[in-house]
Design a binder for these strands. Sequence first.
DNA 1: GTAGACGGGATTGCATCCAATCACAAGAAT
DNA 2: ATTCTTGTGATTGGATGCAATCCCGTCTAC
Lengths: 253, 253
Amino acid sequence: MSESIAAPLLPPTASVAPQTRDGHASLRVARGLREAIVAGDYPPGSRLRQEEIAERFGASRVPVREALKVLEADGLITLVANAGAWVSQLTLAECEEVYQTRERVEPLLLRLAADSITAETLDQLDSLAEGMVDNDDVEEFLRLDRAFHLTMYAGARTLVLGDLVERLWNSTQPYRRAYTLMIDAHSQRIVHDEHHMLVTALREGDIDSAERILEGHIRRTRRRLAAHPQLFADTTTDRPTTPRQKGPSWPSQ
Amino acid sequence: MSESIAAPLLPPTASVAPQTRDGHASLRVARGLREAIVAGDYPPGSRLRQEEIAERFGASRVPVREALKVLEADGLITLVANAGAWVSQLTLAECEEVYQTRERVEPLLLRLAADSITAETLDQLDSLAEGMVDNDDVEEFLRLDRAFHLTMYAGARTLVLGDLVERLWNSTQPYRRAYTLMIDAHSQRIVHDEHHMLVTALREGDIDSAERILEGHIRRTRRRLAAHPQLFADTTTDRPTTPRQKGPSWPSQ
DNA sequence: GTAGACGGGATTGCATCCAATCACAAGAAT
DNA sequence: ATTCTTGTGATTGGATGCAATCCCGTCTAC
């Protein structure tokens, strides 16, 4: 998570190489496992076994456990003592909470980044937005959407806010993916218009407008998600195991 | 961090007991070390040695290292590979970033908690605020201030927002402490008035007002902190070591 | 007196091993 | 059929040990 937010367009990622003992095994595991979860390799509810992860990244279980602690703090996974680790499942209410938080903090991050947004950045944002029009490849759509937002924020020199926003994006990625699969052309067009309005406001240097447009953009996305409650974990279902199992008792939070 | 935000008034804390292998050693270490740092036992810039911490909490270095990873995600400490762990030092700009983030998210948390604020809670808030008047015990003042805010939010059933706010409070606690040492009666009175206005707005059920008052309260505190730049780490100083040492090269972020 | 180089001892990163604990499948009871 | 019980094998939590690495006191040069 401490890698720069400035590189939203990640390479195909073969950070799976163990080989040299570089003193960064747990960082490598955390980064690779985070990417795998965000990419959908491990869907919400799936169990993560330390031994399997250790083998996948060529490390022992000790750095894997450290990585799991980090991913738990990210909100990506849920650890239960003496039981195991599961990819976090969000209820609709929890997902809305994350989006409400995004509505508040992303405009601030945009403001902090505004000074560093150049004409080149704005052109780049335009082309990212254009690439999302009539795009029926879900993964590509998601990648462009994420790149659009993170590119706007890339110039902000922040200590915690950039990482926070990236964590909020990561933890809701599976639900954005599921929703994108069923998105209609009309909604897609609205997203595009909002992105374009955002770039226009930034081009005019109207930060206050940009903040409000971004806030509304996130809020409307939240509302559309809320219209599809079937995408989310049932509040009555035991957690954190996968829905098809009875599962262990979930520690009363 | 996953303990309930509802208990801001922590007991003197003797969670230092090892004894039984309960499968929660790393949680115990993380909690205890967090409290120690927030309490000021380890001031910003001080180095944390794994062996010493392990001995203090009666554990081996493995759970200590897991706890350090968690505290790094909290923003409380800074880890450098193959070098060690240091209590985070904030520059003024970084502290202002945290406060700006608080200005955005705490009003939201208050809104989410509003429904659960009872008349009893309001009376409790009043007495906490009253206890801060003419209080010249710095630690007691800090404790009451923290308790006031966290008590307001205690009823919110959140997944991430409550923990986020607590992290933001924790990471800036040393600077609040340093500032409180030099606070004048006038500023103290302003804080008290703002707290009282907040309770009044909540009593009237005017959440929008309460949000704005809270936002302004945090912003004014940020401005007062910014008037005392000498409390913060110098941007030119090498980090993360203590100011009095030359220190290792700080990894270019 | 200040800045830089150096080497030894302290400290970290990680793999391996063992005990404690729980997940989970099969069977019993209602 | 559904819920509860039970045993075991798989899995986790943690301690120890060793190699790699860096912190830091000391020495040297200017």
